[in-house]
Design a protein around this nucleic acid. Sequence first.
DNA 1: GTCAACCTTCTTGTCAACAATCTGGTTGAT
DNA 2: ATCAACCAGATTGTTGACAAGAAGGTTGAC
Lengths: 226, 226
Amino acid sequence: MTDKLTGAAGRQYVAEAIRHSLSSGDLSPGQRLVENDLAESYGATRSAVREALQDLAAEEIVEIVPRRGARVRAVSVDEAIQITECRSALEQLCAMKAATRASQEQRTELRQIGAEMRQAVADGAVHTYSILNQRLHELVVEASGQEVARRQLDRLNGPMVRFQFRLALRPGRPAQSLQQHLAIIDAIAGGDATAAARAAAAHLEDVIEQLRSSAAMPSTPVPTRV
Amino acid sequence: MTDKLTGAAGRQYVAEAIRHSLSSGDLSPGQRLVENDLAESYGATRSAVREALQDLAAEEIVEIVPRRGARVRAVSVDEAIQITECRSALEQLCAMKAATRASQEQRTELRQIGAEMRQAVADGAVHTYSILNQRLHELVVEASGQEVARRQLDRLNGPMVRFQFRLALRPGRPAQSLQQHLAIIDAIAGGDATAAARAAAAHLEDVIEQLRSSAAMPSTPVPTRV
DNA sequence: GTCAACCTTCTTGTCAACAATCTGGTTGAT
DNA sequence: ATCAACCAGATTGTTGACAAGAAGGTTGAC
């Protein structure tokens, strides 16, 4: 058990560990990621760490500059907005396709999620709502059959963890987005493609609005060093 | 000069060389890429080749399966269509933004490209047209200021080289797409965002149509081995 | 003739030592 | 006090040898 994690296993493990440290706030943007340190603290070899960092760089979570090592990539509010704009474009596509292509089971599950979301908001269960939110977006993409879009969206979400974190905690946010989510669900489950696209667009337009207003009041003081 | 290409330099060089071999048809989908062979034929070290393959895998041009090596990824017509659908979503976004954000110089260059495209079609200059086409799409994205979308589009285009090749050579194709390109140019240069989005959507809808009909008659017999 | 177990060969994965480079601080001159 | 050159420590990059695993062919039993 004290064995060093080697290659393939270590690579995945280290990447996952770093992703987790990042989303839980243990790592801040701009922070250096020294290969030796990571290797030691995760009990992996340096090769494994190196490859994990390459993977994370491909996901744009980490930035590698030659001969100077890797650091956590800082995402500006402006970039977060651009990312959300792209998400909007792709999710509109998926919502549209899902409205025409979703199976009966998928439509049922959508409505089910809608009901549970309503309940979660009523109960003030923020975390539950967040999980349902994630499942909803996932299910829409799945029902659309757009494998390519799914990959693109995954890549877009990588660098956003930090922001999602900040937005979800705003008081009153779940109640606000609930209506939008229910609109998306209704449109897709009802098979109305254009309404689905419109609903998805409206939802993400609102997220962008939230991001804009968060530019003024950075709830988390971000210790970015150059 | 007979030195082996090492790391950073070799990595880029080898990746570029493979990309080129692929677009020129020297490599067919499904073909195995053996690290040693590549290293020898490009005069690079195996490490450099390995890293280059990782990069290409991130671009989804190549597929790496653990312990079995890398092979050229085969893109099905269905996937090509999905890719184009995503491109459509993102390019609509860019066209829209470009219509409102483009500088005066960019609008002028757009019109210039339009004029040259018209000329190229009149002259039957297929290759010139193809270059202009590329420059047009590039300029639209540039004018949109959507750096994130640009990266996404680059990634989408990676695996498409093979198909672009097949479609561009169809007789009458340039004349057909000319009108669509001119419509995009007019809308953006004229600052009409919704018209720009519509024009981009129409263009890519047509590309999808072309892909669909190419499913029936594969002009290039693709020697895919499992 | 067919099939399964084996064995050889080819290929990828791993590692640890070594080399090259960068960073930050120290020294000495002006 | 300021600045440049320099030096030491830290960190990344590279290499070649070795280990582990897969693919395909061969042998032998039935």
